[in-house]
Simulated assay, not measured.
Amino acid sequence: MKKSNKSLVTERTLNVLMLFATEKELSVSQIASLLDENISSVYRIVNTMEAQDFIEQKSNKKYTLKTPNILKLYNMVSKEIREYAKPVLISIVERFKESVYLSELYEQENIMIIEKQDSPNRLKWTENIGHVYHIPTGTGGKTHLAYIVRNMDEKQKTEYLSKLKLTKYTAKSITDVSELRKSIDQIVADGYCITEGEHVEEIVGIAVPVFNSINDECRHVLSMVMTASRFDPSKKDAYIHALQEGAKRIGQNLSN
């Protein structure tokens, strides 16, 4: 069935919107190039999106998302799981006084923070809901990756990992694919991930997978992030157990 002009415009508009999930700022020419679209068509779409308060133009002539309306849309989509997760995150933060995040697999090479509870400490790591990371950035990203490739055969796993962009954020960042494979295999074997300074210097992250109610899919990860100075090795098992129990509570409400 041939698509109507209206549906084509809608599709193109959504394609433009999705570009901003991984790109902070884009010019009209960049959008046209990335989507292989006519620049005049992109101008019309961008003007409409700007008029509806979904994007705004900066002084450098590039466009960026206008957060309030985007968050309204996202909150509508993810409201249910966030409602289940919020009390879990609050209870963990109340116990350990460290920031806790719930992330979701976003497409196949990204994750998005969909809920969080910040540490009450003045010195803390914090990130916004809706922020997108490339896999395997950080503890959460590595944990997502471990469970994405867990059931792949060797050929599929090799192809997937070889296409990932491995960024050297710090001296401890993993940029070698063979080393990354060992690390993610260990995550699956242990059932949790701990990193120190791989994404940000002097930051420790602990993460566990969140499985759905029938334990056949992992699209979410629960993470705790703290400064290295506050990480207490004697509490390692307590951190992991609290996150795993929290993940289980959240997962019981996920059907798919």
Rank of each mutant, 00 (worst) to 15 (best):
E217V: 08
D237Q: 12
N215L: 14
R230T: 15
H144Q: 13
I174L: 12
I206F: 00
S223L: 02
E202L: 09
H131C: 11
K165G: 01
S162V: 05
K172D: 14
S213L: 06
A189F: 11
S234K: 13
K235P: 01
P233M: 02
R150E: 13
G141C: 04
H199V: 05
G138Y: 07
K157N: 05
V177Y: 00
V188T: 13
M226V: 11
R219D: 13
T139F: 06
P136R: 02
S183H: 13
T143H: 05
Y133Q: 09
C193D: 12
T158L: 09
L180Y: 03
H144E: 12
Y133M: 12
A146I: 08
Y147E: 07
L166V: 05
E217M: 10
I203N: 02
I174S: 04
R219F: 10
C193T: 00
R150G: 01
P136E: 02
I194P: 01
T170R: 09
P233F: 03
V208Y: 03
V204L: 00
K163G: 10
E196N: 14
D237L: 04
Q156H: 10
S162A: 15
K165T: 12
P209N: 03
S213G: 02
F231N: 08
R181W: 04
H199E: 13
H220G: 04
C193L: 01
R219M: 09
T175M: 04
Y147Q: 08
L222G: 05
R219N: 15
S162H: 12
S213Q: 12
H144Y: 10
D237P: 00
V208D: 02
V208E: 03
E198S: 07
T170F: 02
S223C: 07
Q156R: 12
N151P: 10
K168T: 02
D190I: 03
G197H: 03
Y160T: 07
G138N: 12
S234E: 14
A238F: 05
V177G: 02
F231Q: 07
M152R: 02
V200A: 06
L180S: 06
Y169R: 03
N151C: 10
T175N: 10
H134P: 07
V221Q: 04
I203A: 08
D232S: 09
V149E: 10
T227N: 14
V204G: 01
L164G: 04
G130Q: 10
T158F: 09
D190S: 13
E198P: 05
C218G: 08
I203V: 15
V132S: 05
L161W: 03
S234H: 11
S183D: 14
E202K: 15
G197R: 02
T143W: 07
I194R: 11
S234R: 11
E217K: 15
A189L: 14
G191N: 06
Q156E: 15
K165F: 04
R230N: 15
L161G: 04
L166G: 04
Q156L: 11
R219H: 13
Q186F: 04
V200S: 07
Y192G: 09
I206C: 01
R230M: 12
I194F: 01
Y169Q: 00
T170H: 09
G130L: 12
I214S: 09
Y239C: 00
I184R: 00
T175I: 14
E201W: 00
R219K: 15
K165N: 13
V204D: 01
S178P: 07
K157L: 08
L164C: 05
D190Q: 15
A207H: 00
E201R: 09
S183W: 03
H131V: 13
T170Q: 08
I148K: 14
T175R: 03
E196I: 01
V200Y: 07
T195V: 12
